[in-house]
């Protein structure tokens, strides 16, 4: 749980209202086998997440493939129904509500997808794609749909005159802008962006990252970013949750996380990021994790990271470390955290 901190180490920010609250969120996908298709196990994609997202902030979920970050995104937007736990958005518990009841809330929660091409219908014009939310939600626009759509296109840096063009006539970056324009049509409160820039070229990535930041400032949006690129995450986030095999192993303010990462997995992740500077080739101290992420079908017991952790002791195999505040606004789930002396704070 995020607790209100008393001694902020980083620049204190005014905390917004809690917009989205996640409590013990679980999603297991059953695996069926054999002649009778009995349930023999489950992919434990998401296994007990608890966090809050506050109005106006950007929370990022980072981790490697199989850590459950994309599943989490789909749970938050209620594209999937959770197996356990709850998701509360703006005071409404949306964990198990029907599609019909979710519908009005969909205006407020929108999603941006990774692949800017496959998420746009190739047979529809840009105007129709961006205007679709108005039609679906039967929203009357003040100036007429066309005008509103053109304003949206302009807002995301596209030429409004391209209203009648088709997605294939645009480059990858522009398609992602179209996707963003559609997302913004109904002025949502929360946007869940699943790898919004990872399919784009480097120079275009920066354009889209800047656009997302500008839109947040201008429209007061709240973002949940799902990404694997730690450099991009650092740039865009206020807070970051590092996930490993369906659990949050570390959740902290951006500054704390990147300056004093405490979970060994976070440390390893950061040291693995390649850096565009040859000087670092010799200077950097590297931590190389062995092997791959274990399967979420049969995750290691207790601390799920113990099979790859260089600090693992007996206790890590038997007792699961709880996610607790080891420093102000810095939660870690580890028995032997790193950088502990570097922060002012106490266990517990």
């Amino acid at each position: 749980m995020t607790t209100a901190d008393t001694t902020p180490t980083a620049a204190p920010q005014p905390l917004g209202e809690v917009l989205l609250s996640v409590q013990g969120l679980v999603k297991h996908f059953p695996i069926r086998r054999g002649v009778l298709q009995r349930k023999v196990g489950a992919v434990q994609a998401v296994d007990g997440l608890t966090f809050d997202v506050r109005q106006g902030e950007t929370l990022s979920l980072v981790g490697e493939s199989g850590c459950g970050k994309s599943t989490t995104g789909r749970l938050l937007t209620r594209l999937l129904e959770p197996t356990g736990g709850s998701v509360t958005f703006d005071g409404h518990d949306i964990s198990h509500i029907s599609n019909g009841k979710m519908r009005p809330l969909r205006r407020d929660v929108q999603m941006i997808f990774q692949d800017p091409y496959s998420s746009l219908n190739p047979r529809h014009t840009v105007g129709r794609i961006v205007g679709a939310p108005f039609k679906l939600q039967k929203v009357e626009t003040e100036a007429g749909t066309k005008k509103t759509v053109q304003d949206l296109l302009e807002l995301v840096g596209l030429n409004p005159e391209h209203y009648n063009r088709y997605p294939h006539e645009f480059s990858g970056g522009q398609r992602q802008r179209i996707g963003i324009a559609r997302t913004l049509a109904l002025r949502p409160k929360l946007i869940v962006a699943d790898e919004p820039v990872s399919a784009l070229d480097v120079s275009i990535q920066a354009q889209v990252v800047n656009l997302l930041e500008d839109l947040q400032d201008e429209l007061g949006l709240t973002y949940v970013m799902i990404a694997h690129d730690l450099s991009v995450v650092r740039h865009v986030s206020d807070r970051v949750a590092v996930m490993y095999l369906g659990k949050i192993v570390e959740l902290a303010d951006r500054h704390n996380l990147y300056e004093t990462p405490m979970h060994p997995y976070t440390v390893a992740l950061m040291s693995a990021v390649p850096i565009p500077d040859t000087k670092r080739r010799t200077e950097r101290e590297r931590i190389r994790l062995q092997g791959d992420v274990p399967s979420p079908i049969n995750p290691p017991p207790a601390c799920r990271f113990h099979t790859r952790c260089w600090k693992a002791q007996e206790i890590c195999k038997t007792t699961e470390p709880p996610l607790v505040d080891l420093a102000p606004r810095h939660q870690v789930a580890c028995h032997f955290p790193e950088n502990q002396d570097a922060v002012v704070g106490s266990r517990g």
Binding site: S65, H228, L269, P274, R288, L289, Q290
Partner: peptide
């Protein structure tokens, strides 16, 4: 590939 695997 994932970043830790990329490093490997």
């Amino acid at each position: 590939l994932d970043v830790t695997v990329q490093a490997q």
